[in-house]
Design a protein around this nucleic acid. Structure first.
Lengths: 408, 408
DNA sequence: AAAACTTCGTTCGCACTGCGAAGAAACCAG
DNA sequence: CTGGTTTCTTCGCAGTGCGAACGAAGTTTT
């Protein structure tokens, strides 16, 4: 189990691990597939495929699920992935809440819990809440610790690749000294993976949403803050310091209002939830002085309220400036918009696309699809679980098998 | 030699190929290293290392170069990479010239030729010029075709990953129907690799310039056009449609002048060579109405001419807007500025860094170094050759060995 | 100067892997 | 029911990396 820095060498065992991983991924993707078909696609010999499938079957990750249709001879035995073989925990730490999901190996939510929690200034309380909710999820489904692959965490902060678990001292100063990974890993005795929330939203879309086949994708989270995450070559791209995707602080209007970060006209100051709500209070009838919620803006826009429509239009236009820059620089295949406000769909996409078209090269536009997320409000937490799934599908040893190596 | 789509399977031969590649790269990087040291670093067994090195030695890529210093026992035999074992051709197609280099396996230029050539509207003439220059380079060094690994081409156009060789119909409409790769590959009977010029500038920096150890890097080419290239995980990143890095058409000033591309305030309209020269004519003494050249601006700035300094300052400020966006979105470890104007060094870097600091999150700034290129005017052509080198170091079979497989 | 120790590189048998040929099993078509 | 087809397994083979043992070539100690 070499985990050295350079170690990319292969020996006989590594060869098996690699091919085994390839097959496992193929079976997972196809849901059901015969040995013969696997052999054809991978160009591995039938004998090798049989041997590896036997291994996988023995470890409980796949199983035979009856016969398929004949192609003019003996009917193939279909192999299926056992989605329920293990569970995965996903945690979302939002700005004002914590939410936990327990999923199977297909990203389906089996149980979920959430609670209001001030995350920004209360690390101790947040960790306690997370622990409680996680335990509740485990208890609710009577899931033994043994059958949990790991725990993924979505944090509202950039995460440095070399120190996952530590929060950014600039974004979450109160978390100085805390290590989320460390803390939860010791509590539950599980592998813990931490990443930025927008990155995990992107991963979620890549696996369960708009990402059809692992193409490069960018996810933009429209909420209190504006964040984005990139999937490049099937992997979350984090940049040199883990801050790739901080689209919220791109300056789109040099004459705009000042931002907490010290700049002017940041995207977040113009289209963050706070700004939208503020704008709504100005434009919409302020019944009793109470500021409307994002949900009300969404409903208003759907109902045809001109003020709400106007807010969405403005959002689309500003966002278009940033997205145009994104397309020119990165040229992703898909851009997905998430966050509550994105549920207005075309009402947002139309002005956005128009704004982008005015600003991006037509070559980069032509190949890029811009869509809104179809995943629900648990997409970030599910994305956190997906981070674990992705790691395990690549390295089978992460599955908590009884390690029945044939040597034993 | 499986080159299928999915094929990532490994058999015994693939295992050897992979380990062999690893060693080859290590020897290339270290220049000289003993078998024992290789074994320690790779965690391969000494016997395996010896066997593979024998293979490589037999193929002429490496050789023994005497003994190293003892570590308290027998002195190690140092193995060195034979930089001169093969040659590589690199071609730069600029806006108004074509330039060809013949390099060794260490990026050193052995011969070079260049000629004025209108590339944009004259595909036929351009290809002819390229053929002539390449042949001249080969003749000058009496290099037999057999010892050339391949030919790399830097094109002033985005290159679509699925059709390298075809130019973008929007940028170079006159090239419709031409396939550079096809054309040159048949002429010289060599593998041909084509990529965008800025991408290859980035690759050049990654191998021979500011890129110290394969960190993520962005290169920005300041010339007639403004382009950029990203190196991610040691590889050129091309995006979904090959247009990643089109930084030149990012809008930095919504009130700016209209651009050929149809937008307003594109970076290129503000800091492209044309704009700089135009500005210079306004500010500097226009002796005899003749517009100054970029070179004159550089010299003026160095000599302390306030007008030239002012131009450079403006350049730095505008560029800073785009770079700030780049840092927030991609968070590279290094940003390298290339192109003739970048030779003013700190005179440009100071205002640029100040501009960036005003606009980028301090977290992404902290980890990013911004520098000017130290490579000469042949860096793009050398980058084209490097593309070939990179491919061959990964897949040894690209070296035109006499394929003396031990079976023969 | 000789002996003891250290490091380097090679040799050889072993275990494991994937492959290919052969064969058994299962199915379809006439 | 027979011939052809496809699926899957069995078994011997070739190639690979590993580990132990060994010789080679230095350095350090006696």
């Amino acid at each position: 189990m070499k985990v050295g820095t350079a170690a990319l060498t292969v020996d006989a065992a590594g060869m098996r691990a690699q091919n085994s991983s390839l097959l496992l991924n193929m079976i997972w993707r196809e849901r059901q597939i015969s040995r013969a078909e696997i052999a054809r696609r991978t160009e591995l010999s039938p004998s090798t495929v049989s041997a590896i499938v036997a291994d996988l079957e023995h470890s409980g990750l796949v199983r035979s699920i009856g016969a398929g249709v004949s192609r003019g001879g003996r009917r193939p035995t279909l192999i299926g992935f056992r989605d329920d073989a293990f569970s995965i925990l996903g945690v979302e730490m939002g700005a004002t809440h914590v939410s936990v999901v327990l999923t199977d190996l297909r990203g389906r939510v089996r149980t979920h819990r959430s609670a209001a929690q001030q995350v920004r200034n209360d690390p101790e309380g947040t960790l306690k809440t997370v622990r409680t909710l996680v335990q509740e999820c485990l208890d609710a489904e009577r899931v033994p610790r043994r059958s949990v692959v790991g725990l993924g965490v979505a944090a509202p902060s950039p995460v440095h690749p070399s120190a996952p678990g530590k929060m950014s001292p600039l974004i979450l100063p109160a978390w100085r000294g805390y290590d989320v990974r460390e803390a939860l890993s010791t509590t539950f005795d599980l592998p813990v993976f931490v990443d930025n929330d927008a990155n995990l939203g992107a991963l979620s879309e890549c696996y369960w949403g708009a990402g059809t086949s692992g193409e490069d994708l960018t996810y933009i989270k429209l909420a209190t803050g504006i964040g984005s995450g990139h999937i490049i070559h099937g992997d979350v791209y984090r940049g040199a310091g883990g801050t790739a995707g901080e689209i919220g602080h791109i300056a789109v209007d040099s004459a705009g209002p000042p931002c907490l970060c010290g700049l002017r006209g940041c995207l977040v100051t113009l289209i963050g939830s706070g700004a939208l709500v503020e704008r709504a209070r100005e434009l919409m009838g302020t019944k009793g002085r109470k500021a409307p919620t994002i949900r009300e803006i969404v409903e208003g826009a759907r109902a045809g309220d001109p003020a709400a429509r106007q807010i969405i239009d403005g959002l689309g236009q500003y966002l278009g400036v940033a997205v145009a820059g994104l397309l020119n620089l990165l040229n992703p295949a898909i851009v997905v918009l998430g966050g509550e406000i994105s549920s207005v769909g075309d009402l947002l996409l139309d002005p956005l696309r128009a704004s982008v078209r005015k600003r991006a090269l037509s070559t980069s536009m032509a190949e890029t699809r811009i869509v809104t997320s179809a995943l629900g409000d648990k997409s970030i937490a599910v994305g956190a679980a997906t981070l674990v799934l992705q790691a395990a599908l690549r390295d089978r040893t992460l599955f908590p098998l009884q390690h029945v190596g044939k040597t034993a």
